[in-house]
Design a protein around this nucleic acid. Structure first.
Lengths: 339, 339
DNA sequence: TCCCTTTACTAACACGTGTTAGTAAATTTA
DNA sequence: TAAATTTACTAACACGTGTTAGTAAAGGGA
């Protein structure tokens, strides 16, 4: 195979015996211009035989659009490492994008320079960004939003107007807690998914608190322990709860991964699940169904969130308005055998 | 804030009172051209005050390079969904790329059109691609490679010359099986990670077979069951093994996720791990450490594989040669309590 | 003083595309 | 038949950058 150069639209034009403009008209199906059937066919055949594909850079330059979305992972590398739902999010964003011919550019966070993604934006590399797990100490998000650059959050930034897509975590935590109440549990502990400086951790705790209050149960702050994303932290937190004076008869763990550690702690303490201690998780990671016992947990619609984020961002990019600033997706508790 | 237009290099040039060429020279630190210190400073200040960032499309157009790597996930969406190691791979490729100023474009597979990624390549959108989980029925890979387009596989394509990065799966499976032999087990079953049409499944089985042969143990084909990525398939496979005449005293499951289902089957059958039946997995997913009991498993260096793939692909893109066509990474068996 | 080299820059081209304004020929209308 | 419209196309511009070839001015040596 000769190392022949990539064909450009001029090559196609010459082979078809027309102008470059005509080639563009035909290949882009520009509406409102008249092209004879014979010419159209000649152009298409020429393009085919030269294996012509329009150069993306040229197209971007003239159109000013890159047809590319940035997907920025704001979480620390350690968090990303063990994120069982990330593949679903990726697929969701990816499919939403591809469906309308957009590409997805992935930006993990660099520990050394967490806000470096800004450069990619300023260079017009992407038309908009999805920010997964936005951080409240990120100074750039609000600025971008106010400049009118299309931004879509996965997760929320309290007190801001930036459009977002999120699960209704508070409602989920409330459903999980209510389920335990319905099973007759009264002394219900909570292990958070993350330190309470994280918005998502506070939301899940608030749902838990609201369920307790509605049931007329007083909140006992010795029953709250902070998790930290890892099973290890769940193990430690559970051990802390069990070494307290009167032990709980149920625990809501706001993350399945953390819950896995908590389950190990419960078993190591010689207690049975759910007889001695019921446990409900949050996330519904793929393996939760195969925990021992299978974990009752609130389903986080990760694919749906990704898809919605991508879809709405594209709408923003194309200047179609959004009916509402934020979307809070509802979901369901999956009852299995741990409760 | 007025909706002022993005500054281009001409704006910078005019503000600094120099030509556009000079701006380019200064900002790119072009070696071998003389710029007075005063001018250099004026240009830098002008760029700063205009918040100038060179337009990526313009740059790509003239350079012919996009400084972007494609990361193509060839696995089916269902597989990707439950892939616990994907985040590590992504981070690996991402960090390798960012370190040298490259971007990563993510391409999940569309079920409707699995080889559609080709279009992205032909449009010069990316300089090279990493193919994760290449499929043998993919007609494009070889063609791209033969055209000289930079391709790096994560996983292998038997009988091809395409550069790859992979774990030494055969050695891993052999180590896992040897470990069981050392523990005194003699009737060792295997559940594959995937149907044997998959290269990775065959490699792992071959390692298992080789260990058995070396130990002088005859292979009993009733002890082989095919898994299919899911815990469910592991559960079924294990049930199959247990319903056979004489049950095994150990099982090597070539995927931790599949192993999780197998473990459930073992427990449901009233057997103890490892006393009645030892089990060793493959992959070392983040949760394996918290299985019940913690799973002995061969560590798949997912981050390392991703990083190596990215790094080597960039080398290919930049026409630096590779010392060897393929890299087979070695790794270790992590011994925990399931064996 | 004259010539040659170095310094510090700039004019002009090329990359490949989408699109606006315009034109000649063919067809329809008056 | 002359004028007006429609059909089928094309010339030329714009997007923003990197880079090659070239040019004045300044400096140095004989």
């Amino acid at each position: 195979m000769p190392p022949m150069k990539r064909a450009n639209s001029l090559d196609v034009a010459q082979l078809a015996g027309v102008s470059r403009t005509t080639v563009s008209f035909v290949l882009n199906n520009v509406p409102g211009v008249a092209i004879s059937e014979a010419t159209r066919k000649r152009v298409l055949e020429a393009a085919q035989s030269l294996n012509y594909h329009p150069n993306a850079a040229g197209r971007k330059l003239v159109s000013g659009k890159s047809r590319t979305l940035g997907l920025v992972l704001c979480q620390s590398p350690e968090q990303v490492f063990a994120d069982s739902l990330l593949p679903q999010v990726l697929l969701g964003v990816g499919q939403a994008a591809m469906q309308v011919g957009y590409q997805v550019l992935l930006r993990p966070t660099e520990t050394s320079d967490p806000f470096n993604y800004i450069k990619t934006i300023r260079e017009n590399f992407v038309d908009g960004i999805v920010l997964s797990g936005p951080r409240q100490d990120d100074p750039e998000i609000i600025r971008l939003y106010e400049e009118g650059f299309p931004v879509m959050l996965m997760g929320q930034l309290p007190g801001s107007e930036v459009p977002f897509v999120d699960v209704d975590a508070s409602a989920g935590a409330e459903a999980a807690t209510n389920h335990l109440l319905e099973r007759g549990r009264r002394r219900i502990a909570i292990i958070t998914n993350a330190p309470l400086t994280y918005t998502s951790a506070r939301q899940r705790r608030d749902g838990y608190l609201h369920a307790l209050t509605s049931a007329g149960i007083e909140y006992d702050d010795t029953l709250l322990q902070e998790g930290n994303f890892t099973p290890e932290s769940g193990y430690q937190a559970m051990m802390g709860l069990l070494s307290n004076g009167s032990r709980p008869d149920a625990v809501f763990v706001a993350s399945d991964v953390v819950a896995k550690g908590a389950m190990l702690a419960i078993k190591r303490s010689g207690l049975r699940i759910p007889e001695d201690l019921a446990i409900v998780g949050f996330d519904d990671i793929p393996l939760a169904e195969y925990f021992d016992p299978p974990l009752t947990t609130f389903h986080l619609p990760a694919y749906g969130l990704g898809w919605a984020a991508g879809d709405r961002l594209i709408r923003l990019v194309q200047n179609e308005g959004l009916d509402d600033k934020g979307v809070l997706m509802q979901s369901d508790l999956i009852v299995r055998e741990s409760s």
